[in-house]
């Protein structure tokens, strides 16, 4: 590369020390910026935000903080301190999945929600691919959401799918707005797929962006596993 290390370093120092003013009207909102960093937006939208950070020092700084935060999140989920809140039934469920689906190695699991206290203490059960919003590799595709990240649906044709749990598992599907408001919930499902009734999404926001998530209920214990949230778009 023609740019030597010291020149590159100087350029980086100069770029990252450009004073940041307040974000303007064309700046991405925090949710969108965070989603881009977490690779949850489609590549074209991520590139659009990166292009913007080239000329907006405020968003460039937000991007750096956001990236660092995301890395901390991954470390926190993967630092093993989660053992404190992983209870017996959860471990048993995780173990039973490992037994019945050897290739899973629990990679597709997102930890069951264990209350606010649990979320910062959980272990590395969720894979990088899931955390980053990328599709999971086929070898680890046992407990994952099958509907693509960012999939676009007509309001009356929202079809969601996920991989089945062990025989007898029940599922709960929830659709939420980006700020976490519950729009739709269906519990006690036995099939790993769902067609959302058209009138349920009548209140969708103008952006049409929603999250959905699935909770697996193990057949023989009280343990649950939640995957998601994952973004979908309603047009």
């Amino acid at each position: 590369m023609s740019t030597d290390t010291s020149s590159l370093q100087k350029l980086q120092e100069a770029f990252t020390s450009i004073p940041a003013g307040s974000p303007g009207g064309d700046c991405p909102d925090p949710d969108r910026l965070c989603a881009a960093v977490r690779l949850e937006l489609p590549p074209e939208e991520r590139r659009e935000i990166v292009r913007h950070t080239a000329v907006c020092a405020a968003c460039a700084e937000d991007w750096r903080v956001s990236w660092a935060f995301w890395k901390k999140e991954q470390e926190s989920d993967g630092n093993g301190s989660g053992g404190k809140v992983l209870n017996g039934p959860w471990r048993a469920f995780k173990k039973s999945l490992k037994k019945s689906l050897p290739q899973v190695a629990a990679a597709g699991l997102v930890l069951a929600a264990v209350g606010v206290g649990g979320w910062l203490f959980q272990d590395a059960a969720q894979p990088d691919a899931h955390r980053s919003g990328r599709s999971l590799a086929p070898a680890s595709a046992a407990t994952e959401l099958l509907t693509d990240e960012g999939a676009v649906f007509a309001k009356d044709q929202v079809r969601l799918a996920w991989t089945p749990g062990p025989e007898g598992s029940r599922y709960k599907v929830e659709i939420l707005t980006l700020d976490g408001q519950l729009l739709f919930s269906a519990a006690n499902l036995t099939d790993p797929r769902l067609e959302v009734p058209a009138d349920e999404l009548a209140q969708t926001s103008s952006t049409g962006e929603l999250y959905w998530q699935v909770t697996w209920f193990a057949p023989s214990s009280t343990a649950t596993v939640t995957a998601g949230p994952r973004l979908i778009r309603i047009r």
């Binding site: 949710d31 965070c34 935060f69 997102v110 069951a112 979320w119 519950l182 939640t226």
Partner: peptide, 24 residues
């Protein structure tokens, strides 16, 4: 409903960026 850890992280993540902008 139960909230997944990744969802809660997202909420905290977004709140941090929001607050940085407010402070700025």
């Amino acid at each position: 409903r139960e909230l997944s850890s990744s969802y809660l992280w997202k909420v905290a993540h977004s709140a941090v960026i929001d607050e940085i902008r407010r402070q700025r």
